[in-house]
């Protein structure tokens, strides 16, 4: 129980720290975005023929970025933090003129959908391929698979995405080249709509798979080979335990452990990859809005999407940590080493 409490506290502290960093970035920006935004509003109003009232301007800026730029920094910071944590108020998008939270909240499930499938498929392949390579160690299959895995590891996911899009999307016309679903279809829980969603997700998930695949197969192979040489495995064989049980309970379990930790780190990588993937596939998720926000200099949306990514990653890591006990029963018993 202490383990879980500690993890949740840790996640909360991380969230506050990251929010602090976003706030600091917001304020440290050269030509302060709040100033820039204020100037923008002023220009807009004067172009409209009206005169800019400083108080109205302040109120507009505050509505968009979440704090009043004229107050001292600690008051701004407290307001910003309070808005985000208590009211989920991430400010208002400058371009879309809608609350940032609403925009990103509707976009988020799509990003998670792509990333989670990519991660799950990637790691399943890692485990199966790595185990197969270790089982056939030294064989021709092992040699070829090692070189293949190394080569795939050196192909960046966006190169994969571009190749998939060019050949499966445009050349062969097998898969749609953009969007999340066929907009002609009626949205809702009907079979055709669901099919359209999966159909549109094939290429992004395939590219996301490259991110998850990474070097995991090679480390799974290494781990398995190392464990296959351990003494306790010989003992297990001498005790007459069936080879299926040895393979699943003894080898696989111990070999997967380091991979599971690697996956926790990989969660952040997979979510960050969605910026490029959603840009390439024109798939409006959080990543696509991040790109859009940079291009339009929409700072509230940019900061909001960064925080969204962090929160999603934190939740992902928390889930991974809570389920870690299923793989490793020893959690929470980690002894603290002597400090020098």
């Amino acid at each position: 129980m202490r383990y879980f409490v500690k993890r949740v506290v840790h996640a909360a502290v991380t969230l506050v720290s990251v929010t602090t960093i976003t706030f600091a970035l917001f304020r440290l920006m050269p030509g302060n975005p709040s100033q820039a935004m204020r100037a923008q509003f002023e220009a807009d109003m004067e172009a409209g023929g009206g005169t800019a009232d400083p108080e109205v301007l302040d109120a507009m800026v505050e509505q968009h970025i979440g704090f009043n730029p004229d107050q001292p920094w600690y008051v701004q910071y407290a307001e910003y933090l309070q808005d985000i944590i208590l009211y989920q108020d991430f400010g208002q998008s400058y371009f879309y003129n809608e609350p940032v939270f609403d925009i990103l909240f509707t976009a988020m499930p799509w990003s998670i959908f792509i990333s989670v499938y990519g991660l799950a498929l990637g790691y399943t392949t890692n485990i199966l391929l790595g185990a197969a390579m270790a089982y056939k160690e030294g064989s021709r299959f092992d040699n070829y698979a090692t070189v293949l895995a190394t080569f795939l590891n050196s192909v960046p996911y966006y190169v994969g995405a571009i190749l998939f899009l060019a050949f499966f999307g445009y050349e062969l016309g097998l898969f749609p080249t953009g969007g999340r679903y066929n907009t002609d279809l009626q949205t809702g829980l009907n079979v055709r709509f669901m099919a359209s969603i999966s159909y549109h997700a094939v290429l992004p998930v395939m590219s996301s798979f490259i991110v998850g695949f990474g070097g995991g197969a090679l480390s799974m192979r290494g781990n398995s080979i190392r464990i296959l040489g351990e003494d306790y495995l010989r003992v297990a064989r001498l005790r007459g335990i069936s080879s299926t049980r040895i393979a699943t309970r003894y080898v696989a379990r111990n070999a997967i452990l380091p991979l599971y930790t690697q996956m926790m780190i990989g969660i952040a990588t997979v979510f960050s990859s969605s910026v490029l993937l959603e840009f390439i596939f024109t798939y409006p998720g959080v990543g696509w809005y991040t790109y859009d926000a940079v291009m339009r200099r929409d700072y509230p949306l940019l900061m909001g999407s960064f925080l969204f990514f962090t929160i999603v990653t934190l939740i992902g890591i928390l889930i991974a940590e809570f389920t870690y006990g299923l793989v490793d029963p020893r959690i929470g018993s980690g002894d603290h080493s002597e400090s020098y």
Binding site: I21, A268, V294, F306, T310
Partner: peptide
């Protein structure tokens, strides 16, 4: 490590 790399880089690069 928790902060997603690419969005963080984009934010920093957009600022500086």
């Amino acid at each position: 490590m928790t902060m997603p790399g690419l969005p963080l880089l984009i934010v920093i690069v957009a600022i500086w």
